[in-house]
Design a protein around this nucleic acid. Structure first.
Lengths: 179, 179
DNA sequence: CTAAATTAGTCTCACTTGCAACTATCTTAA
DNA sequence: TTAAGATAGTTGCAAGTGAGACTAATTTAG
């Protein structure tokens, strides 16, 4: 079994060296692989809270989190945009959450294609019960980092997110300010 | 549309305040969500290299990367352990790569349950062609960070990776103690 | 005003993947 | 030596998901 990952980034052999060395890539230092693996591991650590305990899958949890965080009802499309989840996936999560009466939806009088989604009382109660658990779990996972390190990590990820345009710029936010 | 993500960690309202405020969680500051989304996005950015160009999927790429990095042939089980990918997934990737003559396998005389996998000449050539592209792509993605920031990121992720391995439950630890 | 283009949401299809059962082989212990 | 248990790898099955077609409603252009 290979050694645990070090802090280094996977590196190409010296570019300018004369004898064209064969390129090699250590998966354990390759950022895309590390991110994938870490995300998978963290997700599964958290799913103990919302999956086994409340029977929610990830898309359902994302709908719940979006509706619980925003207080105004919002459309399925909005949830899909926010969470970068495919609209068909959100649609299924919405259907399932409605069946379980965790959320409800009302027709939008102004645009009868879309529905306004919001938590039911039951859904809000579930949200209130679940959130502290998840935040505690997140803190546990991050407890190996100092407060400063956590800030640093957040900032570094934020830079990458911004450069990949994962986060909304203010103009985009304005453009979508229809909500 | 919600605000752009800051460098902060999702936070509970002050714990000790008298009127029990409703807990809220901003998905955009919630580390598990951010990791998931970032990993998905980075993966898809990279897949342009190995998927569309060479027709490899992620499991196939992981097999290739493992065999290319190590020079001794190794078993499918070893690849599965290394990459934390389910053995059935690796099995299918191996089958597909063999059909395409990118890898080959030989029986292990000492243990006829397992096979020794290694790259064919063609596979090695593919590896040599692909690796520089992927490393370049990784560097592009990380180009929004300074050299110091990249080291920091690697170190922070490394700490979380290490702690998650330590944090594995005792049953899991026992189960994996075969290694 | 009407036709074309756009958008919200649903649904079907194909594909991927994890689980668990299964075969074959190896190891351990009575 | 033999039976029970562990391990490598394969395969069938079921659940989840993205792509994209489709319906219904709205907006835009001519």
């Amino acid at each position: 079994m290979p050694k645990a990952t070090s802090g280094e980034i996977a590196a190409l052999p010296r570019e300018e060296s004369a004898p064209k060395k064969a390129a090699r890539l250590d998966l354990f230092r390759f950022m895309p692989f590390r991110l994938n693996r870490l995300a998978a591991e963290v997700s599964s650590a958290l799913s103990a809270e919302y999956a086994t305990r409340y029977g929610l899958d990830i898309p359902e949890w994302r709908v719940l989190a979006t509706l619980g965080f925003r207080h105004e009802p919002c459309s399925a499309q909005y949830v899909a945009d926010c969470t970068r989840t495919h609209k068909s996936t959100i649609s299924r999560a919405v259907t399932s959450l409605m069946k379980r009466q965790i959320i409800e939806r009302v027709e939008n009088e102004d645009d009868r294609r879309e529905f306004r989604l919001r938590l039911t009382g039951e859904g809000a109660a579930l949200y209130e019960e679940l959130i502290p658990r998840l935040l505690r779990r997140e803190q546990e996972i991050l407890s190996c980092l100092s407060a400063q390190e956590r800030r640093d990590l957040g900032r570094l990820l934020g830079k990458i997110e911004a450069s990949l345009e994962l986060v909304q710029t203010s103009e985009e936010a304005d453009a979508k300010e229809a909500y």
